[in-house]
Design a protein around this nucleic acid. Structure first.
Length: 495
DNA sequence: CTCGGAATTG
DNA sequence: CAATTCCGAG
């Protein structure tokens, strides 16, 4: 009947987190999605469960988790060692972090996640949002989210991954027995839980409690959608982002610097010629003309119309080196026992890791960086640290492939263009750590440029926040601009 | 255990 | 591309 609303649901878990693709049965599920899934089911609490704050979780039974993962991916040989490697790759992507000091304990960076995908959720306002800790380690409080939209409950038809939201709640029983879950048929009821931590970041010390009611409305309401974006192009149609200046403002405030600072690449805003990105350090907004100096480019003055054509924009590699994942090099095995005759020319095996975004790059100016440095387990409050950016930023884009609902099976659809830029530096080496960098870390900065290519990846779907410029919404744009500007002003004080 | 590089895979 | 596989180093 009237429930048009898709499944959007508040923020229990980002919808895309359960994406069909990632849903049970999908082989391309990403590991983190899978982990998330497991985490939401109590039946697996024997093997993995939330623990600690925000997105911390601990793998209680690595072997089991690995087994499950292997089962899903049809990789019987999977084991924790391998799985953990995959997990480690997430560090750079900023999807996960390792909670140091605790074995098998990792932490999701929901901040970014949520942020990026749900920039407007109440985040700070949460009146109900617990801000952290899902199941609460010490207490036992399961928190439920305030039902913002009462009628959202969709019947969970079967394993519908509906975000369920908080349907039930506490009801956790003492996990009955470990090992009873069949690897193949674990279709349990959607649990509740999983609360995810959204970072509180209340601005003024605790003040954000009042919070306006979460506006469900802001969730979607594409009333002004210009046109239907192509499914392929639109990152998350299902998403809902309304661009109200206010929302934006809140959002910005919430993370103001954090995200904008460096993590969120301005790229995202390129679509908004009108929007100015608040530069944290350096008010570059005022005079776009003047800039450069040693600072990295970023002013994003050009309307995305042009991109780096020559490729020389990179004046300086900036101080940071961005590490990306290892590119696919068609190298042959190195050991192989016998030497193959590779090309005499040999390839310089560079690390090829340094990537820099073409024009925009991160404004990062200095600061030690983001990483939240979780060194020592505690105190890693990235999110709490408004001081520095707290959790870094990066976002991953959900695979928003609007596949058919019934497509639980194989979907030929490979149009999933999920991508993301992983810029970053190292996490382990927080600012003072010196022992870590050494080997490679630098040395490759100059490499960063190759690539461009036209933005293949840029397709990006990065965050859903950006929507196309609404024709009639201009007004909003103005406001938005204003809001942003204000924010920038507010934030820019360091100077 | 944890961290990552490197190569390989689909 | 994300993951898998293998593996040496700490």
């Amino acid at each position: 009947m009237t429930k048009t609303k898709p499944t959007f649901t508040r923020f229990a878990f980002p919808e895309w987190a359960y994406k069909p693709e990632s849903s049970p049965g999908s082989r391309q599920i990403q590991l983190w999605h899978f982990i998330l899934e497991l985490l939401r089911k109590e039946e697996y609490h024997d093997v993995i469960a939330w623990q600690g704050d925000y997105g911390e979780f601990v793998i209680k039974d690595p072997d089991e988790v690995a087994r499950l993962w292997g089962a899903r991916k049809c990789k019987p040989q999977m084991n924790y060692d391998k799985l953990s490697r995959a997990l480690r790759y997430y560090y750079n992507k900023r999807i996960l972090h390792k909670t140091k000091g605790k074995r098998f304990t990792y932490k999701f960076n929901f901040n970014k996640l949520v942020l990026v995908n749900y920039p407007f959720i109440d985040m700070g306002s949460g009146r109900g949002v617990p801000q952290s800790a899902p199941p609460v380690p010490t207490g036992g409080t399961h928190f439920r989210f305030p039902p913002s939209t009462p009628s959202e409950v969709l019947s969970s038809s079967e394993e519908l991954r509906s975000p369920g939201m908080f349907t039930n709640l506490a009801h956790r029983r003492a996990r009955g027995h470990p090992g009873s879950r069949g690897p193949a048929g674990h279709r349990i009821h959607p649990e509740s839980l999983s609360p995810f931590p959204v970072s509180p970041l209340p601005g003024p010390g605790g003040a954000g409690l009042l919070a306006p009611p979460l506006s469900p409305a802001l969730s979607m309401t594409p009333s002004h959608l210009p046109y239907t974006p192509s499914p392929t192009l639109s990152p998350m149609l299902g998403s809902h982002f309304s661009f109200n200046p206010e929302d934006m403002k809140h959002y910005l405030q919430a993370h103001n610097q954090s995200v904008y600072n460096y993590h969120l690449s301005p790229r995202a805003f390129l679509h908004y010629p009108n929007i100015v990105i608040p530069q944290p350090h350096r008010p570059t907004l005022e005079k776009p003309t003047a800039h450069h100096l040693h600072a990295p480019p970023l002013a994003l003055s050009h309307p995305l119309g042009q991109q780096p054509g020559g490729g020389e924009e990179q004046q300086h590699p900036s101080t940071f080196k961005f590490k990306l994942q290892p590119p696919p090099l068609g190298r042959k095995q190195r050991e192989a026992g016998s030497s193959l005759a590779m090309s005499p020319q040999s390839f310089p095996k560079l690390k090829h890791v340094g990537y820099v975004v073409p024009s925009q790059v991160e404004p990062i100016s200095d600061i030690e960086s983001d990483e939240e440095v979780e060194v020592t387990d505690i105190s890693e409050e990235d999110e709490l640290n408004h001081n520095n950016e707290d959790d870094d930023g990066d976002i991953f884009t959900p695979t928003g492939a609007p596949v058919s609902p019934g497509g639980t099976r194989c979907i030929p659809l490979k149009l999933r263009f999920k991508r993301r830029w992983s810029e970053d530096q190292k996490m382990e080496a927080d600012g003072e750590r010196d022992e870590a960098e050494d080997k490679k870390v630098r040395a490759e900065e100059e490499a960063g440029e190759m690539e461009n290519g036209g933005g293949r990846e840029a397709g990006g779907v990065i965050l859903g926040l950006m929507l196309p410029p609404p024709p009639t919404q201009r007004r909003a744009s103005s406001e938005l601009q204003r809001a942003t500007a204000q924010l920038s002003l507010e934030n820019s004080d360091t100077e």
